[in-house]
Amino acid sequence: MTLVVAHTRRSYRSYAAPMVGLGSFIAFVLLVEVLIRIGALNRFIIPAPSEIIASFGRLFLEENIVQRFIFTAAECIAAGVMVTVCGVTIGVVMQRFSLLQRACETWVAAFASAPLVLAYPLFMVIFGRNAWTIIMMGFFSALPPVILKTIEGISGTRKVLVNVGRSFNLTGTQQFWKILFPAALPTIFVGVRLGLIFALINIVGTEFLINFGGLGQLINDLAERYDLAGTYAAICFVILVSVLFFIVLEKAERWLRPVD
């Protein structure tokens, strides 16, 4: 009997937080709806949530949001692959040559906080008004966290693991591939996850700014047509995609990482 009560309490606790979160969100949406309907909020600046929800169908039927999503996703994948390969390689090289690390790490960290999106005209001059500009913007914005986390991961390898490698007479290459790299992988993956999120933000942002490509361009088009409900619906779609993207990456990370 006591067991059953304890179990019920546990399941109640595990559901309580998400239910409160969802409830708060629904309450907020309803509040906005009411405030707009009674005229406390200007409906020409903020469309009613009910109108935004109603616009979703239109985005699928008339605005080809699925194709646009595929376009943006392809750009993200391209930037993601490039940033993983280049970022991890640069991080490893910097960590292996301490002079290079001491010389450049601060620059990379500073670069991470720079508003790179403002440099989009330069990228357009170099790559033209095409997908490469968008991919490269995503790539460069995602590079610093991957580099920094790779350095952190390799440098943070526990000394005893390195000593185990030394006690087995490993060569430098074996030490790297069999001990340093696998030990650093969880931290590297955190960098890749952060980098991919930065890439997604910058890719959608650049699409919006240069009015080219997938979801960002759609938001730009809808805003220019003053289709406020559609604009907000598209923004909500991008937010949903980002949340989904984050969840998938988190699951992938858990799947790739064995028990610590």
């Binding site: 526990r158 005893v160 693991l161 000593n163 185990v164 001990i179 696998p182 030990a183 992988l185 064995p258 028990v259 610590d260």
Partner: peptide
């Protein structure tokens, strides 16, 4: 070694 030295991966 004295410290835990298994490879967690």
């Amino acid at each position: 070694f004295q410290e835990e030295s298994t490879f967690p991966w």
